[in-house]
């Protein structure tokens, strides 16, 4: 369970807060989409939940424990993080990247056969076992994202926290990846992700949080929360513009 209680957060003392009095609770097994315009605090919220930010004491709890009282190792066993698509400097092989997900479970010496099995199982789960020996930096964006998801799965956490997992991918890869994410959710994994596309939140189902100006505007089942008026209000669109955009399908 992840719990946020009345969280105010600013990156510097004199700057206006990015998150302004946010409270929410995410149970295990849930799929949670976080939506909102650029700069509304989506990524900051994710980073706060991962313990990357110096949040005030008593505002973020993981499994009932204050996040800053938990060791990184213990945190890594509960929460796995899938960053936005990135390059990296060193051209590790795909298997080496996925094995990094096992670091918290055995920080010294090499990896055990169990670690290797878990890494391969994770690759199989997202159906990219054939890429195991390939250099990571030579993969396409969609493949890289699958590798990072496999690494998070190898980490064996209850929660998968993803920062805009499909941004930067082409149309086909977006849906391929969303299907994989939906399958993982159906297998009982808790998933928290940020997205720019309301229709993707509807596709994934579960619950949606609408975030604007660092405050929660709506919180509920995706199909109920994501309505035309709510989307208009969230992104400052006129009903005509939204209608036009929705008509432009094929």
């Amino acid at each position: 369970m992840i719990e946020v209680r009345d969280l105010y957060f600013a990156y510097a003392p004199k700057e206006p807060p990015v998150l302004r009095g946010l409270s929410l609770r995410i149970e295990t097994g849930e799929v949670v989409n976080i939506l909102g315009p650029n700069g509304c605090g989506k990524t900051t919220l994710l980073r706060a939940m991962l313990g990357f930010l110096p949040t005030p004491p008593g505002t973020v709890f993981i499994g009932g424990a204050e996040i800053h009282t938990l060791k990184r190792r213990d945190l890594a066993r509960r929460l796995a993080y899938v960053p936005q698509i990135h390059g990296g400097v060193f051209n590790y092989s795909v298997l080496e990247v996925v094995l990094m997900g096992r670091t918290a479970l055995s920080p010294w010496l090499g990896f055990s056969p169990v670690d290797q099995d878990r890494a391969l199982a994770a690759l199989n789960k997202v159906r990219i076992a054939r890429l195991a020996g390939r250099p990571y930096l030579q993969l396409s964006g969609g493949e890289r994202q699958l590798v990072l998801i496999a690494r998070a799965l190898a980490q064996n956490g209850r929660f998968l926290i993803m920062d805009e997992p499909v941004s930067g991918l082409d149309y086909g890869n977006q849906f391929h990846l969303l299907t994989v994410i939906r399958e993982l959710a159906e297998q009982g994994l808790s998933i928290v992700l940020t997205t720019h596309h309301p229709e993707q939140a509807v596709f994934l189902g579960g619950r949606s949080l609408l975030l604007k100006d660092g405050q929660l505007r709506a919180d509920g089942p995706s199909r109920e929360v994501i309505t035309a008026p709510a989307v208009c209000a969230l992104y400052d669109l006129s009903p005509e513009m939204l209608a036009q955009a929705r008509r432009a399908t094929f």
Binding site: R47, G51, A76, Y81, Y92, E96, G101, T103, P107
Partner: peptide, 18 residues
């Protein structure tokens, strides 16, 4: 192994439990 994880950047290393 720790060095590998740290070579992926600050946030990722922390998320990997370091």
């Amino acid at each position: 192994k720790t060095i590998n994880a740290l070579s992926q950047g600050e946030d990722e290393a922390r998320a990997l439990g370091i």
